[in-house]
């Protein structure tokens, strides 16, 4: 018996170890441990042994069964591991193939800049207000100290709808609306499209974008004009940007100032962009003219105000190094889609 069982086990071991896939392993299991398997059969024929031999042979056969089962399970694990390894090997990818991208749209650079400016000024307590593009001559000019039929109208070439209605030449016209409808304190920025009857060229468009700012309160000073705008310049153009203020003229401010920032290209040493001056003109500003304050019903002895206005297309061009303003209006996908990251 011993000999026979040992032979059986060693045969089983041999075939188990040589088998390479789970299907064949299962056949082996059936051959030895199945209902008609050799070991199962052997156990069934225990009755052929004497009562003395029976427990010994029985134990022996049961142990053999356990051994074979363990061998099969171990082998099963090994084969599974090999098969998994092979499967993973076969599934190897060329990870340099292009990804399957969902599409994503880009923002228009002007709206990127608008949003950034809105964020910067929100930190200084400014709210965003808007007004109509088609505006009364009164709001756009007369209330801002630019009388009708006056040579000062030459400063801005204007599109007219009727004698009384214009396409606004600046968003400053919204200042009038805001002040007439509210009481100080006021802090607002006013984004929007503006219109001038200029032919298109690399630096002009008949429709472009502006952001105006307005602060009215008791004790607003010219120092505040400088402070608010310097803060903006440092946030927008970078903390190392130099700013300077030059006296200028706008009908609706007195004193008036033009703000320059150090050139974004040469940082002040002089280049073609800044016409060798080292400075770039960015915006106009000043304290609100007393006539403007009186026109909206405020007393210039009690409140003062500051106003500023900047061309958004120009600062967008400076920020992104765009050399022709018309690119902003063309909407060529090859241009617009460059701002996906913006």
């Amino acid at each position: 018996m011993d000999e026979k069982a040992k032979k059986l086990i060693s045969e089983a071991r041999k075939s188990i170890e040589s088998v390479m896939n789970l299907l064949e392993l299962e056949e082996i299991r059936v051959k030895y441990l199945g209902k008609k398997g050799e070991l199962t059969q052997a156990l069934r024929s225990l009755g052929e042994y004497s009562e003395d031999e029976r427990p010994i042979v029985g134990r022996f056969l049961n142990e053999a069964r356990e051994t074979v089962r363990d061998m099969i399970e171990t082998r099963r694990g090994t084969i599974a591991a090999i098969e998994l390894e092979n499967k993973l090997k076969a599934e190897d990818l060329d990870i340099t193939l292009p990804g399957k991208r969902p599409s994503i749209g880009a923002r228009h650079p002007v709206s990127v800049v608008y949003e950034e400016l809105e964020r910067i000024f929100a930190h200084l307590g400014f709210e965003v207000l808007e007004g109509p593009d088609v505006e009364l001559d009164y709001n756009n000019f007369e209330a801002l100290n630019v009388p009708r039929n006056h040579p000062s109208r030459d400063i801005q070439d204007t599109f007219y709808i009727t004698d009384d209605i214009v396409l606004r030449t600046h968003t400053t016209c919204v200042d009038t609306r805001i002040m007439k409808n509210r009481k100080p304190p006021i802090r607002a920025i006013i984004p929007g499209k503006v219109y001038r009857s200029d032919a298109s060229d690399p630096s002009h468009l008949p429709v472009f974008h502006q952001l105006d700012g307005l602060v009215v309160d008791e004790g607003v000073t010219f120092g505040d004009v400088k402070g608010v705008l310097a803060r903006f310049a440092h946030e927008f153009f970078g903390p190392d940007t130099d700013v300077r203020f030059r006296p200028s003229y706008f009908p609706f401010t007195e004193p008036s100032a033009e703000m320059d920032v150090s050139c974004v290209i040469c940082h002040g040493s002089g280049c073609r962009l800044c016409k060798q001056t080292g400075w770039l003109e960015i915006l106009g500003s000043g304290l609100l003219h007393p006539r403007v304050l009186r026109e909206v019903g405020y007393d210039p002895e009690e409140v003062s105000g500051l106003a500023f206005g900047m061309g958004i297309d120009r600062v967008t061009m400076l920020k992104y190094g765009i050399d022709d303003i018309r690119l902003l209006a063309e909407n060529d996908m090859a241009f617009n889609r460059q701002f996906i990251h913006a």
Binding site: F126, E127, E130, P185, I186, G223
Partner: peptide, 23 residues
Amino acid sequence: GYDKIPTTIPKGAPPEIRLNPER
């Protein structure tokens, strides 16, 4: 000289800000 005028931030408390729903 505009450059000699000190740079300040408006002193008054900022007005209550209304978020612009359209924006």
